[in-house]
Computed example of a mutant assay.
Amino acid sequence: MRRVLILGGTAEARALAAELVERGVHVTSSLAGRVRNPRLPAGEVREGGFGGPEGLAAWVRNERPDALIDATHPFAARMTASAVEAARLTGIPLLVLRRPGWPQAPGELRVPSLEAAAAELAVGDRVFLTTGRRSLPIFANLTGVWFLARSVDPPEPPIPRNVHIILDRGPYTLMGELALIDEHRLTVLVTKDSGGELTKAKLAAAGERGLKVIMVDRPPLPGGVTHVETVPAALDWLRDIGAA
Protein backbone atom coordinates (compact mmCIF):
# COMPACT_ATOMS: atom_id res chain seq x y z
CA MET A 1 0.00 0.00 0.00
CA ARG A 2 1.24 3.48 -0.89
CA ARG A 3 1.75 5.86 2.02
CA VAL A 4 1.54 9.66 1.99
CA LEU A 5 2.20 12.16 4.77
CA ILE A 6 0.15 15.38 4.51
CA LEU A 7 1.11 18.36 6.64
CA GLY A 8 -1.72 20.74 7.51
CA GLY A 9 -5.42 20.95 8.19
CA THR A 10 -6.42 23.29 5.39
CA ALA A 11 -9.47 22.64 3.21
CA GLU A 12 -7.10 21.51 0.45
CA ALA A 13 -5.32 19.11 2.82
CA ARG A 14 -8.63 17.55 3.83
CA ALA A 15 -9.81 17.25 0.22
CA LEU A 16 -6.55 15.62 -0.82
CA ALA A 17 -6.65 13.18 2.09
CA ALA A 18 -10.22 12.17 1.21
CA GLU A 19 -9.29 11.53 -2.44
CA LEU A 20 -6.25 9.46 -1.52
CA VAL A 21 -8.07 7.35 1.07
CA GLU A 22 -10.77 6.68 -1.54
CA ARG A 23 -8.03 5.41 -3.85
CA GLY A 24 -6.65 3.06 -1.24
CA VAL A 25 -3.63 5.11 -0.21
CA HIS A 26 -2.65 5.09 3.47
CA VAL A 27 -2.72 8.75 4.50
CA THR A 28 -1.32 10.26 7.65
CA SER A 29 -2.33 13.88 8.20
CA SER A 30 -0.29 15.91 10.66
CA LEU A 31 -2.09 18.81 12.37
CA ALA A 32 -0.21 21.45 14.33
CA GLY A 33 -2.67 21.24 17.24
CA ARG A 34 -3.11 25.02 17.46
CA VAL A 35 -6.88 24.92 16.89
CA ARG A 36 -9.25 23.30 19.34
CA ASN A 37 -11.65 20.77 17.83
CA PRO A 38 -10.20 20.95 14.29
CA ARG A 39 -12.00 19.52 11.31
CA LEU A 40 -10.41 16.10 10.96
CA PRO A 41 -9.40 14.69 7.57
CA ALA A 42 -9.90 11.15 6.36
CA GLY A 43 -7.27 8.60 7.25
CA GLU A 44 -4.84 8.55 10.16
CA VAL A 45 -4.37 11.79 12.10
CA ARG A 46 -1.51 12.89 14.35
CA GLU A 47 -1.51 16.15 16.30
CA GLY A 48 1.42 18.22 17.51
CA GLY A 49 4.75 19.14 16.00
CA PHE A 50 7.61 16.86 15.02
CA GLY A 51 10.34 18.82 16.81
CA GLY A 52 11.71 20.73 13.86
CA PRO A 53 13.06 19.44 10.55
CA GLU A 54 15.24 16.82 12.24
CA GLY A 55 12.21 15.40 14.06
CA LEU A 56 10.20 15.34 10.84
CA ALA A 57 13.09 13.64 9.06
CA ALA A 58 13.28 11.03 11.81
CA TRP A 59 9.55 10.33 11.45
CA VAL A 60 9.93 9.96 7.68
CA ARG A 61 12.84 7.54 8.08
CA ASN A 62 10.88 5.48 10.59
CA GLU A 63 7.49 5.43 8.85
CA ARG A 64 8.81 5.44 5.25
CA PRO A 65 6.00 7.27 3.42
CA ASP A 66 6.30 7.46 -0.37
CA ALA A 67 5.68 11.21 -0.53
CA LEU A 68 5.43 14.31 1.65
CA ILE A 69 2.79 16.94 0.91
CA ASP A 70 3.04 20.34 2.61
CA ALA A 71 -0.55 21.58 2.52
CA THR A 72 -0.20 23.91 5.50
CA HIS A 73 -1.60 27.44 5.68
CA PRO A 74 0.02 29.86 3.22
CA PHE A 75 1.49 31.75 6.19
CA ALA A 76 2.97 28.67 7.91
CA ALA A 77 6.46 29.55 6.65
CA ARG A 78 8.28 27.77 9.47
CA MET A 79 6.54 24.47 8.78
CA THR A 80 7.23 24.76 5.08
CA ALA A 81 10.90 25.41 5.79
CA SER A 82 10.96 22.33 8.02
CA ALA A 83 9.37 20.23 5.27
CA VAL A 84 11.94 21.41 2.74
CA GLU A 85 14.83 20.60 5.08
CA ALA A 86 13.38 17.20 6.04
CA ALA A 87 13.03 16.34 2.36
CA ARG A 88 16.65 17.31 1.80
CA LEU A 89 17.77 15.15 4.72
CA THR A 90 15.76 12.08 3.69
CA GLY A 91 15.37 12.33 -0.07
CA ILE A 92 11.58 11.94 0.15
CA PRO A 93 9.66 13.55 -2.77
CA LEU A 94 8.12 16.83 -1.53
CA LEU A 95 5.24 18.82 -2.99
CA VAL A 96 3.88 22.11 -1.66
CA LEU A 97 0.12 22.49 -2.18
CA ARG A 98 -0.89 26.15 -1.85
CA ARG A 99 -4.17 27.59 -3.00
CA PRO A 100 -3.70 30.79 -5.06
CA GLY A 101 -3.83 34.13 -3.31
CA TRP A 102 -6.51 36.75 -3.85
CA PRO A 103 -5.97 39.24 -6.69
CA GLN A 104 -5.26 42.78 -5.55
CA ALA A 105 -8.36 44.98 -5.65
CA PRO A 106 -8.30 48.65 -6.70
CA GLY A 107 -7.26 50.82 -3.76
CA GLU A 108 -6.12 47.87 -1.69
CA LEU A 109 -2.91 48.43 0.26
CA ARG A 110 -0.47 45.50 0.20
CA VAL A 111 2.08 45.29 3.02
CA PRO A 112 4.87 42.77 3.69
CA SER A 113 4.10 42.01 7.35
CA LEU A 114 1.66 42.32 10.22
CA GLU A 115 3.91 44.95 11.76
CA ALA A 116 3.66 47.00 8.57
CA ALA A 117 -0.14 46.64 8.68
CA ALA A 118 -0.22 47.92 12.27
CA ALA A 119 1.90 50.92 11.25
CA GLU A 120 -0.76 51.93 8.69
CA LEU A 121 -3.52 52.30 11.29
CA ALA A 122 -4.47 55.71 12.65
CA VAL A 123 -6.33 57.17 15.60
CA GLY A 124 -10.07 56.85 15.04
CA ASP A 125 -9.89 53.75 12.86
CA ARG A 126 -12.42 51.01 13.55
CA VAL A 127 -10.69 47.88 12.36
CA PHE A 128 -12.01 44.50 11.30
CA LEU A 129 -8.99 42.36 12.22
CA THR A 130 -9.02 38.87 10.67
CA THR A 131 -5.35 37.93 10.88
CA GLY A 132 -5.69 35.19 13.52
CA ARG A 133 -5.51 35.17 17.30
CA ARG A 134 -1.72 34.83 17.41
CA SER A 135 -1.33 38.17 15.65
CA LEU A 136 -3.16 40.26 18.26
CA PRO A 137 -0.05 41.11 20.34
CA ILE A 138 1.33 43.01 17.35
CA PHE A 139 -1.61 45.44 17.61
CA ALA A 140 -1.75 45.52 21.44
CA ASN A 141 0.06 48.83 21.95
CA LEU A 142 -1.92 50.89 19.47
CA THR A 143 -3.94 53.67 21.07
CA GLY A 144 -7.02 55.38 19.70
CA VAL A 145 -7.86 52.40 17.47
CA TRP A 146 -10.88 50.11 18.01
CA PHE A 147 -10.75 46.48 16.88
CA LEU A 148 -13.24 43.80 16.01
CA ALA A 149 -11.09 40.65 16.02
CA ARG A 150 -12.31 37.29 14.77
CA SER A 151 -10.65 33.96 15.47
CA VAL A 152 -11.53 30.29 15.89
CA ASP A 153 -10.22 30.06 19.47
CA PRO A 154 -9.91 32.70 22.22
CA PRO A 155 -6.70 34.76 21.99
CA GLU A 156 -4.17 34.95 24.79
CA PRO A 157 -2.79 38.25 26.10
CA PRO A 158 -1.42 40.67 25.26
CA ILE A 159 -4.31 41.90 23.16
CA PRO A 160 -5.45 45.42 22.22
CA ARG A 161 -7.23 47.29 24.99
CA ASN A 162 -10.09 48.35 22.74
CA VAL A 163 -11.02 45.03 21.17
CA HIS A 164 -14.20 43.03 20.79
CA ILE A 165 -13.56 39.33 20.13
CA ILE A 166 -15.77 37.16 17.95
CA LEU A 167 -15.18 33.41 18.01
CA ASP A 168 -16.26 31.96 14.68
CA ARG A 169 -15.12 29.67 11.90
CA GLY A 170 -15.73 30.04 8.17
CA PRO A 171 -17.23 29.80 5.68
CA TYR A 172 -18.68 33.29 5.96
CA THR A 173 -21.40 34.92 3.88
CA LEU A 174 -21.54 38.33 2.25
CA MET A 175 -24.69 39.26 4.19
CA GLY A 176 -23.10 38.21 7.47
CA GLU A 177 -19.96 40.25 6.80
CA LEU A 178 -21.98 43.29 5.77
CA ALA A 179 -23.98 43.02 9.00
CA LEU A 180 -20.78 43.00 11.08
CA ILE A 181 -19.42 46.03 9.25
CA ASP A 182 -22.66 47.96 9.75
CA GLU A 183 -23.20 46.92 13.37
CA HIS A 184 -19.70 47.91 14.49
CA ARG A 185 -19.26 50.89 12.12
CA LEU A 186 -16.04 49.45 10.76
CA THR A 187 -13.79 51.56 8.55
CA VAL A 188 -10.73 49.36 7.91
CA LEU A 189 -10.21 45.69 7.09
CA VAL A 190 -6.84 44.18 8.03
CA THR A 191 -6.38 40.65 6.72
CA LYS A 192 -3.82 38.23 5.28
CA ASP A 193 -3.69 36.95 1.71
CA SER A 194 -4.80 33.45 2.67
CA GLY A 195 -6.73 32.88 -0.55
CA GLY A 196 -9.63 30.48 -0.91
CA GLU A 197 -13.39 30.79 -0.79
CA LEU A 198 -14.14 30.14 2.90
CA THR A 199 -13.22 33.66 4.04
CA LYS A 200 -13.40 35.63 0.79
CA ALA A 201 -16.77 37.25 1.57
CA LYS A 202 -15.11 39.85 3.84
CA LEU A 203 -13.33 41.32 0.80
CA ALA A 204 -16.57 41.71 -1.14
CA ALA A 205 -18.25 43.24 1.90
CA ALA A 206 -15.38 45.67 2.44
CA GLY A 207 -15.63 46.70 -1.19
CA GLU A 208 -19.37 47.31 -0.95
CA ARG A 209 -19.01 49.46 2.17
CA GLY A 210 -15.92 51.32 1.01
CA LEU A 211 -13.58 50.12 3.75
CA LYS A 212 -9.87 50.69 3.49
CA VAL A 213 -8.30 47.25 2.96
CA ILE A 214 -4.81 46.45 4.27
CA MET A 215 -3.66 43.08 2.94
CA VAL A 216 -0.61 41.30 4.32
CA ASP A 217 1.26 39.51 1.54
CA ARG A 218 2.01 35.82 2.06
CA PRO A 219 5.63 34.79 2.58
CA PRO A 220 7.44 33.50 -0.53
CA LEU A 221 8.02 29.80 -0.97
CA PRO A 222 11.58 28.50 -0.64
CA GLY A 223 13.47 28.43 -3.91
CA GLY A 224 13.39 25.25 -5.95
CA VAL A 225 10.38 23.66 -4.27
CA THR A 226 7.79 21.91 -6.44
CA HIS A 227 4.50 23.76 -6.02
CA VAL A 228 0.90 23.30 -7.21
CA GLU A 229 -2.26 25.26 -6.47
CA THR A 230 -5.02 22.64 -6.67
CA VAL A 231 -5.88 19.21 -5.35
CA PRO A 232 -6.19 17.69 -8.86
CA ALA A 233 -2.69 18.93 -9.67
CA ALA A 234 -1.39 17.37 -6.45
CA LEU A 235 -3.04 14.07 -7.38
CA ASP A 236 -1.42 14.21 -10.82
CA TRP A 237 2.00 14.75 -9.21
CA LEU A 238 1.49 11.83 -6.84
CA ARG A 239 0.42 9.62 -9.75
CA ASP A 240 3.47 10.65 -11.75
CA ILE A 241 5.85 9.61 -8.98
CA GLY A 242 3.93 6.39 -8.33
CA ALA A 243 2.55 7.37 -4.93
CA ALA A 244 -1.15 7.35 -5.82
Results as ranks from 00 to 15, higher is better:
Pro74Gly: 12
Thr80Ile: 03
Val152Pro: 00
His184Trp: 15
Arg209His: 14
Leu186Glu: 04
Gly48Phe: 02
Leu180Val: 08
Gly170Glu: 10
Pro157Tyr: 12
His164Thr: 14
Leu94Met: 08
Asp66Gln: 13
Asn37Asp: 15
Arg161His: 08
Val111Arg: 05
His164Pro: 00
Val225Ala: 01
Asp70Val: 02
Ile181Phe: 07
Val152Met: 10
Lys202Gly: 01
Pro93Thr: 02
Gly55Lys: 05
Arg150Thr: 07
Gly242Lys: 02
Met1Cys: 04
Gly43Ser: 01
Leu40Glu: 15
Arg161Cys: 00
Asn37Leu: 09
Gly207Arg: 15
Pro41Val: 10
Asp236Arg: 13
Asp193Trp: 08
Gly33Tyr: 05
Thr191Cys: 14
Asp217Trp: 01
Ala32His: 03
Leu56Asp: 03
Leu235Cys: 07
Ala76Lys: 11
Ala32Arg: 09
His164Ser: 12
Ala118Met: 07
Arg134Gln: 15
Thr80Gly: 13
Val21Ile: 11
Val228His: 13
Arg36Gly: 08
Gly144His: 12
Gly176Val: 09
Ala204Ser: 13
Thr230Asn: 04
Thr143Asp: 13
His227Ala: 10
Pro93Met: 01
Ala15Pro: 00
Ala233Arg: 13
Val123Phe: 07
Trp237Val: 06
Ala204Arg: 14
Gly176Thr: 09
Asn162Arg: 15
Ala58Ser: 14
Val231Cys: 03
Ala58His: 08
Glu63Trp: 15
Met175Ser: 12
Trp102Thr: 10
Asn162Lys: 14
Ala244Ser: 13
Ala204Ile: 07
Gly207Tyr: 06
Ala105Ser: 13
Ala244Tyr: 11
Ser29Arg: 03
Pro100Val: 07
Glu63Leu: 12
Ala58Val: 04
Arg133Asp: 05
Glu12Thr: 09
Pro232Thr: 01
Pro220Ser: 13
Val152Ile: 14
Pro171Phe: 03
His26Pro: 00
His164Lys: 14
Asn162Val: 01
Pro112Cys: 10
Leu5Met: 11
Gly242Ala: 05
Leu235Ile: 05
Pro137Trp: 09
Pro155Ala: 13
Glu22Trp: 02
